[in-house]
Design a binder for these strands. Structure first.
Length: 426
RNA sequence: GGAAGAGUGGCAGAGCUGGUUUAAUGCACCGGUCUUGAAAACCGGCGUACGUUAACGCGUACCGGGGGUUCGAAUCCCUCCUCUUCCGCCA
C-alpha cells in the first residue's frame, strides 16, 4: 500500500507509474480523489479533536463540582456534555468513514514501477533481460512430455491424485518422490550457504497475516480457506515468512535479514484451464523454497541483484537452460516495483516454464506490515522487502524429466546425485 | 474440550471500592554536573500514531483486540484472542 503522504508529495511520479501499468488518464484521477478525501479527513479530525477536548474539560469540572457538593451546577454541565456527545459521535463515525474510504482506495492503487520496468501490456512484451545463448536442446520428435515420462517410469500418479484430492494434486512416487526430496534439500542447503536462516513456518495463516501481504481482501479467491477456524492455506511461504516482520522495528545494524523456507504452496488457480494446466505445469499444490530479505532502502537493489545471482546459480548447477525476463508494466505484480522472472526451457513440450520470480517491493509491503527501522537520527523509516523463489519444484521436475531424457532413462543432474543416491531414473 | 487465574509504556511492576493518573516507582537508555577517565552519586530527559503550528508548543487517541454503560473507564459490563496452572483427550 502506498502512503497517502507519498501520493500527495509525488503525485506526478505515481501517475507516471500507473500509466506504465496501462492505467488510463481517467483512472489516475483516483490519486486526486485520495488527496481530496484526506483533506476532508484532516478537517473532520480537527473538529472532532477539539470537541473531545471541550468535553474532557467539562467532565473534569463536573468531577470538581461533585466533590465540593455543588450538585445542581454539575447537573447543568452534564446536560451540556450530553448534547456535545451527540455531535461527537457523528463526527467520529464520519471520521471512520473517511479513513475507511481512503484505505479502500489505496488498496486499489498498485506499487509504482521502478524506472527499469519496460512499457508493455502483457507477458509477450516482457523484456528478455538475459537470454540463453547456447543452442536449446533438441530431442527430436520422439521427445516425451514430462507427464508421459512420469507414467513410463512410474514417477507421478496423476490419477491417484485425482482420486484422493482432485485434479491438480499430483501424487509423486518412487524415484519421483525421491527427486522431490533431493531438490528440497539441495535448495535449502544452497540457501543456507548463502547466509539465509532456515525457518519452518505455519502453513495455515490467520486473516491479519493474509491481509498484511495483500492476499486479502482482493485475492481471496486464490486461496483455500479453512472456514471453520478462519484460517487460510498459504499460496506461498512469502505470506508467513514476511509476516515475521509485521509490527517490527529493526535497527540499522540488523540489516540485512535473510530468511529461507521450504513449504508446500496451495493455490486454487480458479479460472485457469487448458493446455497450460497439463501435468505439472499448473497445479493446486506444489513445493517451493522461498528466499526473503529485508533490506535497507539505500541498498535494496544490490540485495535484489544478489538474490538474482543466487537463483541463477541454482539453475546453472542443475544444468538447465534458462533465461531471465524483466517484467513489463502490464505483467508486473500489483505489489512489486521490479520483478525478474526465471524461465526454464522444457525440451519435451518445447516451451519455457516460469520457475522463479524475484521481486523488490520497496516500501509497498512494509507500509502495510508496519515494518520499520530506526535510522541514525532515531527516526523510524519503512524498510524494503524482497523475495524470490529458489526454486519452485514442480516445474523444475518437469524440466529435468524432459531435458534429461535419453534412451536409457532420465539422467539425474550431477549436483543432485549425492542427495538422491543414484544416477539414473529408469 | 472442561475449570480457575492473568494480560499495563524497552523490561520489571503499582493502580483495578470509576474523577489531581497528564499511568506511580524501579531498572535500562539519552543528556548534564562532578572526575585525568570511568564507576557511583545528583539533576534533567525518556512511548506510538494522528491533527494543528513558521517554530516552541498545543490537542486527540492508545493500559491484549473489539463493543457497551457513564458527564467521565486502565478501573464496571459483554465478547473475542493469547498466556499460566489443573483435568480430559491425543501424535
Amino acid at each position: 500500500m502506498l502512503r497517502t503522504e507519498f501520493i500527495r508529495n509525488n503525485t506526478e511520479l505515481v501517475k507516471k507509474g500507473l500509466i506504465k501499468r496501462n492505467w488510463s488518464e481517467d483512472r489516475c484521477a483516483i490519486l486526486e480523489e485520495v488527496i481530496t478525501l484526506d483533506d476532508q479527513r484532516k478537517k473532520i479530525q480537527t473538529s472532532s479533536d477539539s470537541l473531545l477536548h471541550e468535553m474532557n474539560l467539562l467532565s473534569g469540572q463536573i468531577g470538581d463540582l461533585y466533590k465540593s457538593g455543588r450538585r445542581e451546577e454539575a447537573e447543568v454541565l452534564k446536560a451540556k456534555v450530553g448534547e456535545l456527545k451527540e455531535n461527537s459521535k457523528e463526527l467520529e463515525s464520519k471520521l471512520k468513514e473517511a479513513v475507511d474510504n481512503i484505505e479502500a482506495k489505496l488498496l486499489t492503487i498498485p506499487n509504482v514501477p521502478n524506472e527499469l520496468v519496460p512499457f508493455g501490456n502483457s507477458e509477450e512484451e516482457n523484456e528478455v533481460y538475459k537470454d540463453w545463448t547456447e543452442a536449446l536442446p533438441d530431442l527430436g520428435d520422439n521427445a516425451l512430455a514430462h507427464w508421459e515420462l512420469a507414467e513410463k517410469y512410474n514417477l507421478i500418479d496423476f490419477k491417484l491424485g485425482v482420486k484422493i484430492a482432485g485434479s491438480g494434486f499430483p501424487l509423486f512416487r518412487n524415484k519421483g518422490s525421491k527427486l522431490q526430496r533431493a531438490l528440497i534439500n539441495f535448495f535449502l542447503d544452497e540457501a543456507s550457504k548463502a547466509g539465509y536462516e532456515e525457518v519452518v513456518p505455519p502453513l495455515l495463516v490467520n486473516a491479519p497475516t493474509a491481509t498484511a501481504t495483500g492476499n486479502l481482501p482482493d485475492k481471496e479467491g486464490q486461496m483455500y480457506v479453512a472456514e471453520r477456524d478462519e484460517l487460510y492455506l498459504i499460496p506461498t511461504a512469502e505470506v508467513p515468512v514476511t509476516n515475521i516482520f509485521r509490527d517490527v522495528i529493526l535497527n540499522e545494524a540488523d540489516f540485512p535479514q535473510k530468511l529461507t523456507a521450504y513449504t508446500p504452496c496451495f493455490r486454487r488457480e480458479a479460472g485457469s484451464y487448458g493446455s497450460d494446466v497439463k501435468g505439472l505445469n499448473r497445479v493446486h499444490q506444489f513445493d517451493k523454497i522461498e528466499i526473503v530479505q529485508i533490506a535497507h532502502p539505500a541498498n535494496s537493489y544490490d540485495v535484489h541483484q544478489e538474490m538474482l545471482d543466487h537463483v541463477e546459480g541454482l539453475l546453472q548447477k542443475l544444468e538447465l537452460p534458462y533465461r531471465i525476463l524483466r517484467l513489463c508494466g502490464g505483467d508486473l505484480t500489483f505489489t512489486s516495483a521490479l520483478t525478474y522472472d526465471f524461465e526454464v526451457y522444457s525440451a519435451g513440450q518445447k516451451k519455457w516454464l516460469e520457475v522463479s520470480s524475484v521481486s523488490n517491493f520497496e516500501t509497498y509491503q512494509s507500509n502495510r506490515l508496519k515494518l520499520r527501522y530506526k535510522n541514525s537520527e532515531g527516526k523510524k523509516q519503512l524498510a524494503h522487502t524482497l523475495n524470490g523463489s529458489a526454486l519452485a519444484l514442480a516445474r523444475i521436475i518437469a524440466a529435468i524429466f524432459e531435458n534429461n531424457q535419453t534412451e536409457q532413462g532420465i539422467k539425474v543432474p550431477a549436483v543432485l546425485v549425492p542427495y538422491i543416491g543414484f544416477d539414473w531414473i529408469n
